[in-house]
């Protein structure tokens, strides 16, 4: 009896991280705001998350602090989630993504990312479940196409700002059938060697 309680205790405290990233180029206050809501915290708690890490961009600290203090009471009522934030990591965010993937003794979490191709690619390579949230203030941006296409192929969850709770639920589903990136080659590649074949062609290497 005592032992099973201990085991339950153990699984309960196993770290599970949700990493939110808005990238380095544009600000995305709406996403920072959307993840610092009681509703979103509830969704995280339901899915057994313990940590929330927000990369808020070079100028996002004020926004982050503002929401944290504004909603301090509501959020602290759900204080079993540890919230941290930082501006940007010059060396890339691969390390944060890996910690969302989970180190030894931790549970695999999720990455919530803006629709930047660099961030998406990083997450796909690490094979951590990914929710892509296109920035509505950049609606003419072609990157929304990338999010839609990848979602329809079943590689990512296309998250919407108004309903991130649903995205968290979907990402648990995505985790169960996580596909490996890159996809099996579906193009017409006679050499089967991708870019290396084309480069060798153009160089005139014959062997």
């Amino acid at each position: 009896m005592a032992q099973s309680n201990q085991a339950a205790e153990k699984t309960k405290v196993q770290k599970k991280l949700c990493f939110v990233t808005i990238g380095a180029t544009a600000s995305f206050d709406a996403l920072i705001s959307a993840v610092l809501t009681p509703e979103f915290f509830d969704a995280l708690r339901e899915a057994n998350y313990t940590h929330l890490l927000v990369q808020y961009g070079k100028e996002g600290q004020l926004i982050f602090n503002k929401y944290m203090s504004q909603r301090a009471e509501q959020l602290s009522a759900r204080n079993n989630i540890v919230v941290q934030g930082f501006g940007f990591n010059k060396n890339g965010l691969a390390q944060e993504m890996r910690s969302a993937k989970g180190n030894k003794g931790e549970t695999e979490g999720v990455v919530i990312s803006h629709a930047g191709s660099g961030s998406i690619l990083d997450a796909l390579r690490i094979a951590v479940p990914l929710i892509v949230v296109p920035n509505p203030s950049l609606l003419n941006n072609h990157q929304i196409e990338l999010a839609e296409e990848l979602a329809s192929m079943g590689y990512v969850v296309h998250g919407k700002l108004a309903n991130l709770r649903a995205a968290i639920t979907e990402s648990e589903e995505l985790r169960r059938r996580q596909k490996v990136w890159p996809p099996v080659n579906s193009g017409e590649d006679p050499s089967g060697r991708g870019i290396a074949g084309v480069m060798d062609d153009e160089m005139g290497f014959v062997d």
Partner: peptide
């Protein structure tokens, strides 16, 4: 035009144009 054939291992120079974040990562 077809490139002239050449032997692998001869000195070659490859020029790579890099761009901003996303382009460079790709």
């Amino acid at each position: 035009t077809c490139p002239a054939p050449r032997k692998r291992g001869a000195p070659t120079r490859l020029l790579i144009v890099l761009g901003s974040g996303g382009h460079t990562a790709e």
